[in-house]
Simulated scan of single mutants.
Amino acid sequence: MWKNIVVFIFLMSLSIAQIPDIVAHRGASKDAPENTLAAFELAWEKGADAIEGDFRLTKDNKIVCIHDSTTERTAQQNLVVADSTLAQLRKLDVGIWKDKKWQGQKIPTFQEVVATIPDGKKIYVEIKSSAKIVPFLAQEIVDLKIDIKQIVIIAFDKQVIVEIKKYYPLMKVYLLSNFLKKKQQRRIPSTKKILETLRQINADGIDGIATFLVGKKFVNAIHDAGFEYHTWTINDKATALYFQSLGVESITTDRPYWLRQKLENERAIIEQK
């Protein structure tokens, strides 16, 4: 009986909860090589609300899109991004590791990635470098003349968030968190501690790893305090439905089209009941 009641409550919460924005993790990275223009363009074709990319500062103070601190995993030559120039990095092929059909993909610049964004869509810019990147990023945003409402900054480094807000007080900036680990297990910090941190660094919300340790009470407390709650990286229907029921603002996924279809189909089924 109680199980049926719980299922009923869950279904009811889904019927009234909006489908969160679908953010393409490193582009449509299940199908295309991550953090490449091909992956971002495919994400837009697949109907993503936003793309998410990882950005680092090069030796010559250019901003490039790559997750790791080195090119070892995605290129055939191992360079340290921070110790390499843009010209050196652009010589690398970062597509062929995924499949031969992606051969020739290069590490894109921040400007090239931003240029793919359609009107009304957004980019989640994950800063992988230190706060040293911020002045250069701020200048590139000025040069691009892009609406700052289309740019969201996410970072694990609290100082990055502090510095970004000095340049763009109205830009959305979220603190990334994989939550604390203790003996290989995740542990959610107290709500009080999370809220204190968000206020201290002037963040607009939290972008937390998808774990079932996060519950409705926790997300509600974040929302009630005036902050947003986003989550990453979800590639299965059950987890996505759970976080949708919590009322999160966005879900980051490697499979933007597939996940949206699953959520829309589930809503259609519920509304027919």
Rank of each mutant, 00 (worst) to 15 (best):
M1R: 13
W2V: 14
W2A: 13
I5Q: 11
V7E: 15
F8K: 14
F8D: 12
F10T: 05
L14K: 04
I16N: 01
P20M: 03
I22Y: 11
A28L: 12
K30G: 07
D31I: 12
E34F: 00
T36C: 03
T36G: 05
F40C: 08
A43Y: 07
E45G: 09
K46E: 15
A50R: 07
A50T: 04
I51Y: 03
E52N: 02
G53W: 00
G53Y: 04
D54R: 03
R56Y: 07
R56P: 01
C65S: 09
H67Q: 00
S69G: 14
T70M: 02
T71K: 00
R73W: 01
R73T: 00
T74S: 00
A75R: 04
Q76S: 12
D83Y: 13
S84F: 05
T85N: 10
L86A: 11
L89Q: 05
L92K: 06
V94W: 00
V94N: 00
G95Q: 05
W97M: 01
D99I: 07
K100P: 07
W102E: 05
Q105T: 04
I107D: 00
F110E: 02
D119E: 15
G120L: 09
I127F: 05
K128Q: 09
S130W: 01
P135S: 03
V142Y: 11
V142P: 02
D147K: 03
K149L: 06
K165Q: 06
K166D: 13
Y168E: 08
K172V: 13
L176D: 04
Q184P: 06
Q185L: 12
Q185W: 04
R186T: 11
I188E: 07
K192L: 13
E196F: 09
I201H: 04
I206D: 01
D207N: 14
L213N: 12
V214T: 12
K217C: 03
K217T: 13
G226M: 08
F227S: 10
D236S: 11
A238Y: 14
L241Y: 03
Y242E: 03
Q244N: 09
V248P: 00
T252N: 10
R260Q: 13
R260Y: 14
L263K: 08
E264Y: 11
N265K: 15
A268D: 14
